[in-house]
């Protein structure tokens, strides 16, 4: 898995392209998904997403995927789960402070981002992970959020967290979500 993860980061540019296409498709699907009910599709989509992303990126299903902002290197593989860059403990050769046998997730992220078209997104400050969204589908969230983002111009209502991290809200709206969450996506909401 680690080697596939490294492969994905080496080919960050291609994966960025694939992700952009997937994202467009998901946004286009928003009305359909809304009609079927996001609540109904949440579990099956989350299952598929988990299978695909675990193989490719060692995904931890944080539910707030920011791969496009992290050079396709999943920040949840950082033992400190840092979302904004490497800590001050990186070992000589760029190895992890906590897991010395692993390359620093963030050293790889910056490397991956340098090959990506939208690599500059790595400079945007990301908010802390909302832990109650763990295990839910980030793809569906992107679909909802990007669609909501389009409506946002009309809507004045913003939550404080999205306000405090405006860059993140624009680049990775699923990291600072505004749209209504379906009950299935949020832990302890029933």
């Amino acid at each position: 898995m680690y080697r596939i993860r490294l492969f994905a980061i080496r080919h960050s540019r291609s994966f960025e392209w694939i992700y952009k296409r997937l994202e467009s498709a998901m946004i286009a699907l928003d009305p359909v998904l809304a009609k079927i009910g996001y609540d109904r599709v949440e579990r099956p989509v989350a299952f598929v997403e988990k299978c695909v992303k675990t193989v490719l990126f060692d995904c931890k299903m944080c539910g707030q995927c920011v791969l496009s902002s992290t050079g396709m290197s999943c920040p949840m593989n950082c033992p400190k789960q840092l979302r904004n860059g490497p800590c001050g403990g990186v070992r000589p050769g760029g190895f992890c402070e906590v897991k010395p046998e692993m390359k620093c997730v963030w050293a790889l992220a910056w490397d991956g981002a340098s090959r990506m078209k939208g690599g500059a997104q790595i400079h945007t400050v990301l908010p802390p992970v909302e832990r109650n969204l763990e295990g839910s589908s980030s793809w569906l969230r992107v679909s909802r959020e990007k669609a909501a983002h389009l409506r946002e111009a009309r809507e004045k209502r913003r939550t404080a967290i999205a306000d405090a991290f405006p860059g993140a809200r624009a680049n990775e709206p699923s990291a600072a979500p505004l749209a209504e969450e379906p009950a299935q996506a949020v832990k302890g909401s029933k």
Partner: peptide, 12 residues
């Protein structure tokens, strides 16, 4: 280990 924030989200 907690690491709910990282140093940057804490600053913000």
């Amino acid at each position: 280990p907690v690491f709910d924030f990282d140093s940057l989200s804490l600053l913000r």
